[in-house]
């Protein structure tokens, strides 16, 4: 299959994977309750019952190239109807679970390697054993995808322990005025995007859910106090950057080839308007200019702030302050 060819809808493949996995599960669990099987596969009971009934119509073309009763899956219908129990009374062709594809194994292996960054969660030996099992369980050598161990963050350990024991954490964090503030937080969820870890928690200073970058926390400690807010009673968003009414709009000019490098800052509202000179204009939301000036300065030459003037000045002042330090150091 060529890379450019049409990709099959993912869900047809998921449903085939389900059928191929469901049958060996039923073989190994004679008399399993519909509710238990449904919970195990993460589907509703009605859906699971429909899948059981569907399997009974399927089988192999037998000796006469037709599907006789002995060539089809069958179940104990009385047990299903009366007791919600599934017994296969006739089975064909399949005994065991299928192997993983090379890419399926690679996806889990790479994910496991990534989890090694979580201190105390997954020790190296356990992960190595698991990766070896996945490789042996794959139908071909998994493609080369690897993730290095990185550097574990001590703050992650503090938060993880607090999350596990349901206790509060406290740390210094930069606010919108560029000052540090002590934030008492009930941890709700530890999240990450690639190499960056975030704590989603209830901030007692703001009286609301906030997201904090773990590598920007200073002097984190676990206070030992019990949390007042838990993931069960706070609705947690799945997106990392929730727009806020306090956001500032900033106009940008981006080198066309650099658009992917700022993709995570672009929202549905950020229209890209080419300026005909290899650059595009767009607008993004930012919480404050302190974050913006750092972003712009870390992508030199690729990103220009066009408006408002205060935002341009924040970036220029940032660069000027840095150059002043180099100049005064040069004279010293």
């Amino acid at each position: 299959m060529s890379a450019a060819g049409p990709t099959r809808p993912a869900f047809a493949q998921d449903r085939l994977a389900f059928l191929l996995s469901f049958v060996p599960y039923l073989i190994d669990h004679p008399g399993v309750k519909v509710a238990d099987a449904a919970a195990h596969f993460g589907v509703g009971e009605e859906e699971l019952r429909a899948q059981v009934e569907r399997i009974t119509g399927l089988g192999v073309p037998g000796a006469t190239a037709t599907y006789g009763p002995e060539d089809l899956f069958d179940i104990d219908w009385d047990a299903l109807d009366d007791a919600d129990e599934i017994y296969l009374t006739n089975r064909v062709a399949i005994d065991d679970a299928p192997k993983f594809s090379a890419r399926e194994a690679a996806a889990l292996i790479a994910g496991l390697q990534y989890l090694q960054a979580l201190p105390g969660r997954a020790d190296g030996a356990a992960i190595a054993t698991l990766m070896a099992k996945l490789s042996r369980g794959a139908s071909a050598t998994p493609p080369a995808v690897a993730i290095d161990r990185g550097v574990a963050d001590a703050a992650l350990g503090v938060i993880r322990a607090a999350l596990d024991t349901g206790t509060r954490v406290e740390f210094d964090y930069l606010n919108s005025r560029g000052e540090h503030e002590r934030r008492p937080v009930d941890p709700l969820r530890l999240e990450s995007r690639d190499d960056t870890w975030y704590l989603r928690g209830w901030c007692h200073l703001r009286g609301d859910v906030r997201i904090f970058r773990v590598d920007r926390m200073q002097h984190p400690i676990a206070t030992g106090e019990k949390v007042q807010h838990t993931p069960e009673d706070v609705a947690l968003s799945e997106t990392l950057f929730d727009p806020s009414a306090d956001d500032l709009w900033v106009g940008l000019r981006i080198a066309e080839s650099a658009i992917p490098t700022v993709a995570e800052y672009l929202t549905a509202e950020s229209k890209l308007v080419p300026d005909g000179e290899g650059r595009v204009r767009t607008r993004i939301r930012v919480a404050h200019y302190h974050g913006l000036k750092r972003l712009v300065a870390s992508l030199p030459g690729l990103l220009e702030v066009t408006d408002p003037p205060e935002a341009r000045k924040a970036v220029a002042d940032w660069a000027q302050a840095a150059l002043d330090r180099y100049r005064s150091r040069g004279r010293a």
């Binding site: 996995s21 599960y25 065991d96 299928p98 993983f100 594809s101 890419r103 194994a105």
Partner: peptide, 11 residues
């Protein structure tokens, strides 16, 4: 890919 691997693991 990982979703299908997890389905197979349920077997």
């Amino acid at each position: 890919d990982s979703r299908r691997a997890l389905i197979k693991l349920r077997a």
